[in-house]
């Protein structure tokens, strides 16, 4: 097993006769990895498997060299913000975090310091001494994130972490995830809000009906789908000439002139071939201002792979 990755080896999970996930083989590198899929696709099951909250029916999971049934070691390097919106009764935000850290750290003063630091990171300092029962949904989400972050873990597993947060808090959280990824930590996020993960993810794991249908960098996943045409928007000074030029290629499926007459929307089966040809076209005198992939966001990939299942935009 690669102790530098989070590795799923032929992992299946069945709840009785109901399929959770099946035959999952993935290796998650450092950075931000998004689990994307509609409700019931297996995102939470995959996260619960990764954190030992459920045990695989088959297969093995290795989190940076730790077994998932070894909570004592696992949760020293991993923090998990679950989607369960419930807390031990009667605790304030601070007591909740401090109690968790006393279990983890032991020393009272260290636990207290870490608790306050985590509370500060999620912007709950003023509400920390209030009972969690009086928190809004967004505040509860933030205190869950604080629990996951509090002991500064190497792996952050966050189930729908941006749910219920206002735009400012979302931006702050995304910045937090990015800074963690920049420190070569593992940030695993699940979401069914695709445009969010598209913006922040380094890798994506696409799930459907308990199966991993694609994994890797978003662009790489897109490129692996050879049969599916890539759409590229090319901004240039002579779009009609550009269109005529690229229509000569056999891999070109469709070319349309942009409505503002300053660009071309190309649909091709061979993106790499197009980029090579583009250099030649530029040398022939057409001034190319920009070349932008028009559909290698998660949504496009997801729609292509999974079809008409529920996708929240």
């Amino acid at each position: 097993m690669n102790s530098g990755h989070i590795v799923f080896e032929d992992v299946s999970k069945f709840y009785g006769e109901i399929l959770g996930v099946n035959k999952v083989n993935v290796s998650i590198p450092p950075g931000i990895t998004s689990l994307v899929g509609p409700n019931g696709s297996g995102k939470t099951t995959l996260m619960n498997l990764m954190t030992g909250l459920v045990r695989p029916t088959r297969g093995r999971i290795d989190v940076l060299g730790c077994r998932t049934d070894d909570a004592e070691r696992l949760f020293k390097i991993l923090g998990y913000a679950t989607q369960y919106d419930s807390f031990p009764k009667g605790l304030t935000g601070f007591q909740f975090l401090n109690g968790y850290l006393r279990l983890a750290e032991g020393k009272a003063r260290t636990a207290e310091e870490l608790a306050w630091r985590a509370i500060e990171r999620v912007g709950l300092t003023e509400s920390a001494q209030r009972p969690i029962a009086s928190y809004s949904k967004g505040m509860r989400q933030r205190i869950r994130l604080a629990q996951a972050l509090a002991h500064d873990p190497q792996v952050l597993v966050l189930d729908e972490p941006l749910n219920g947060l206002d735009p400012l808090a979302r931006a702050e959280m995304i910045a937090l995830f990015r800074s963690a990824a920049a420190e070569r930590r593992y940030v695993i996020i699940s979401s069914h809000i695709l445009h969010e993960v598209d913006v922040i993810s380094d890798q994506v794991i696409l799930l459907s009906n308990g199966y991993v249908v694609a994994e890797g960098e978003i662009r790489a996943v897109r490129e692996e789908i050879q049969e599916h045409p890539t759409q590229i928007l090319i901004r240039c000074n002579r779009p009609r000439e550009f269109a005529a030029e690229i229509l000569r290629s056999e891999s070109t499926i469709e070319v349309s002139i942009h409505s503002d007459e300053r660009g071309v929307l190309l649909k091709t089966r061979d993106a790499d071939g197009f980029y090579l040809r583009l250099n030649q076209i530029a040398l022939d005198g057409i001034e190319v201002e920009s070349v932008t992939p028009a559909d290698d966001d998660v949504l496009s990939v997801y729609e292509y792979l999974i079809g008409n299942e529920e996708v929240v935009r």
Binding site: T51, L53, A71, F75, Y84, F87, P88, K89, Y100, L103
Partner: peptide, 12 residues
Amino acid sequence: DRSLHFYFLAPI
């Protein structure tokens, strides 16, 4: 109460 996971997420 759906709060048992709180303990199961601690290194204990």
